[in-house]
Amino acid sequence: MTRLIDIRPGRGGRFLLGALPILALLFVYLLASEARHADNPADKVLPTFAAMAQAIHAFTTDRDPASDRVVIVADTIASLYRLGVGLAIATGTALILGLLLGVVPLARALLGPVVAVIAVIPPVAVLPILFIVLGLDEASKIALIAIGITPFMTRDLTSFVVSLPAEQFAKAQTLGANSWQLAIRVALPQLMPRLIAALRLSMGPAWVFLIAAEAVASDVGLGYRIFLVRRYFAMDIILPYVAWISLLAISSDALLLFASRRGFPWAHGAGR
């Protein structure tokens, strides 16, 4: 008899199997929501799909008074701007530091301990400091994301460069490469796919920092909206917002993976 570990689903089979738990979850939600509404027609904890559709209609047509944009558009633009700038700063800094620390042992000895110390500070704990120093505007939210992500990414990229085979570095030197050439032609290109992988991994924490900062002090943004309507138990808005955030996260992850496969085919099995 075929062993369980040897049964491999095909493409269609995988798709069906993957969809099954999601459909089951939706179905369970539907049942639970029905049950609660049968008990109390004014229940707000598990809104019906009809109520959510109504809420979605509202926040995709009503306009935000401050920006005169549709509410969800204004929130999405504000959040993605903060996230994008924060991640860009983090990625750029981590790339330069990771390369420097990885390639130059002197730099590693000098800066490695500082990065390690900064990396263990819980970023949300420094949020009040950021608010005091940078004010309540965009800068503090962007800074939180950057500070939260950079040390961990730097350490990951550094250790990746350090783990590149020593033979490659020796070989490059016998081919006449100086330190700079070695960094930009040997270490940097091999670091790029790892950078994208590190970025994909830090998207999760980045969202956490964004929503935390927006919840505390903001007047627009996805996290702000969720925490605003929480006061009215508006689960019919919160749940679609959470779903929208998940969708944004999944698509950015897919985009990064696609970019890595297109840009660095040699790192993904080189088209074998």
Partner: peptide, 12 residues
């Protein structure tokens, strides 16, 4: 010049 048993070429 050098050739090692492995890792002598640049994979990228």
């Amino acid at each position: 010049g050098v050739v090692f048993q492995r890792y002598s070429v640049f994979p990228h």
